[in-house]
Amino acid sequence: MQAFTQLTGIVAPLDRANVDTDMIIPKQFLKSIKRSGFGPNLFDELRYLDEGQPDADNSQRPLNPDFILNQEPYTKASILLARENFGCGSSREHAPWALLDFGIRCVIAPSFADIFYNNCFKNGILPITLSEQQVDELFKEATSNKGFNLTVDLEAGCIKGAQLGDINFSVDNFRRHCLLNGLDDIGLTLEQSDFIKQYEAKRKAQAPWLFAE
C-alpha cells in the first residue's frame, strides 16, 4: 500500500448526500478480477451520457459536461469534497480502487459509511470527517474558486489552505500509523500468531463445535 503523509491537491466539490458505492462504481465493472483499471469508470453513470460496459473504449463515450470531474481543472483533482454518508451501500472495495485509480487520495465529508471508510485505509486513501459546518464552508470556497487547493497533512492531523484557517482532524491511531507508513496489516496481524493460537486453543475447549475436523 502506498503511504500517505502529505498531499496538496485540487479539491473537487461533489455536492450530493448519500453517494453510494453503486454510484462510485456500477456493478458491471465489478466483474473484473483485477484491482486496477477502474478509474475511467469512476462515477460512470454520472460521468458519461451512455451506459458503460466493461470492454468499452471510454475515450469514445459521450461525457456529461455538467459532471464536476469532467470539468477542468477537476480532471486532476486529488481531493474529493462530499456530503453526508459518503460511500454507503455495498462493501465493494472496487469503490476505493476506482477513486485511487482516478487519482483521488483524500475524501472529505461530514460522515462516511463504515465499510467504505474502512476500505479507504486499506488502499492508501485518507477519509476525513469534518463537521457539517466546516464542510459547508469548504463547499463555498471550492465552488467559488475553481482551482481551490488544500494541503492535507496526516502526520500533523491538519488541513491547510482554507479561508477558515487550519482545520484539525483526527484519525484513530492504528489506522493513522498504517497509512503513514504504508503498512500491510496482514503482516502485522501475523506477528501476533501466538495470540491467535492461544485463543483458538481456549475456544476449542469451550466451543468444540466451531472447530470441525
Binding site: 462493501s91 465499510i115 476500505n119 488502499n123 496489516d185 496482514i186 491467535i196
Partner: peptide, 14 residues
C-alpha cells in the same frame, strides 16, 4: 460485511 482487503486478511489470519 467486509471489503476485499479484509477478505484476504481473514483468509490469512482468521
Amino acid at each position: 460485511g467486509i471489503g476485499t482487503s479484509e477478505v484476504e486478511h481473514v483468509l490469512a489470519t482468521q
